[in-house]
């Protein structure tokens, strides 16, 4: 559902942008405050509650044994889902996942998979028969914009504190080794202005969105353009540079 945003707010945001600031006083390239609380859920193998400004996301990891996919008999299985529960926003409704939730889960999944955050070949127990299956479940609790980044930070933080329940196969539980730290940074274009980590007011009037996931070297691992508008090439170039720079400090916050 598209929410009705008053033209006043649009004008307000654009007027502020012209004078170099935003509704919450941030600079264009300044993300909101990120708070990460790891091991939030005891019944999960790994979990994290992430607050990015007023956006609040809880990510839980469940790990169990299962069968590998036939085309990757020596690899564990990773599966990511997202639920936009009605509690989190007046615009979310119950029911089967909408395209927005599917895109969110797939973009978070792609960042983790393509960065090889988890070495899936270490997640094999018996080739062709038994592997570790990891479910990343994204639960949005409070929606104030930029679910892509909040969910992605939550997923990486939850993975970083996850335990492989090896006691289920007669061994000792051990921490899931995280080999890479993907960080996604989402930018939105509002008129001629590009802002990083858009809040809900900004997101509602944004023309186009670009999520860039980088690794520790600053290399690109995943990208997703969204919304109905377009980007010029020089804007894409600028967004990538910002994502690398902003990503570095966010990575440190998630790690600690």
């Amino acid at each position: 559902m598209t929410e009705v945003i008053s033209e006043l707010m649009r004008e307000h945001i654009q007027r502020l942008a012209a004078s170099g600031t935003r509704t919450d006083g941030r600079a264009f390239d300044e993300p909101r405050k990120l708070v990460v609380e790891k091991n939030y859920i005891k019944t999960a193998e790994g979990s994290a509650r992430v607050r990015l400004g007023n956006t609040d996301v809880l990510v839980g990891i469940k790990i169990d044994t299962g069968e590998p996919y036939p085309d990757t008999p020596n690899s564990g299985v990773l599966s990511t889902s997202a639920e936009l529960i009605p509690m989190a926003s007046p615009s979310f409704e119950s029911g089967p996942p909408r395209p927005e939730a599917i895109e969110l889960a797939r973009v978070v999944d792609r960042g983790i998979r393509e960065t090889k955050a988890v070495n899936m070949e270490n997640m094999c127990i018996v080739p062709n028969e038994k592997v570790w299956v990891m479910f990343i479940d994204i639960h949005v609790l409070d929606y104030d914009g930029n679910l892509f980044d909040a969910s992605s930070y939550g997923a990486v933080a939850a993975l970083s504190c996850a335990k492989v329940p090896a006691s289920k196969i007669g061994k000792e539980d051990y921490p899931l080794p995280l080999e890479n730290w993907p960080v996604s940074v989402t930018s939105a274009r509002i008129g001629d202005t590009i802002v990083v980590d858009p809040n809900l007011d900004e997101e509602r009037i944004a023309d186009a969105r670009l999520t860039v996931t980088t690794d520790e070297k600053g290399d690109l691992r995943a990208m997703q353009k969204g919304l109905k508008g377009s980007f010029r090439l020089d804007e894409i170039r600028r967004i990538i540079e910002t994502s690398q720079r902003v990503g570095r400090s966010i990575r440190e916050t998630i790690r600690t």
């Binding site: 690794d215 070297k217 690109l220 691992r221 990208m223």
Partner: peptide, 23 residues
């Protein structure tokens, strides 16, 4: 006609330079 990019996705591993040459 305008050079506007209306769809952009990426997966895998590219350096910034490689991405720009791919584009």
């Amino acid at each position: 006609r305008t050079g506007d990019v209306v769809l952009l996705q990426m997966d895998g591993h590219l350096t910034e330079e490689e991405f720009h040459s791919a584009l």
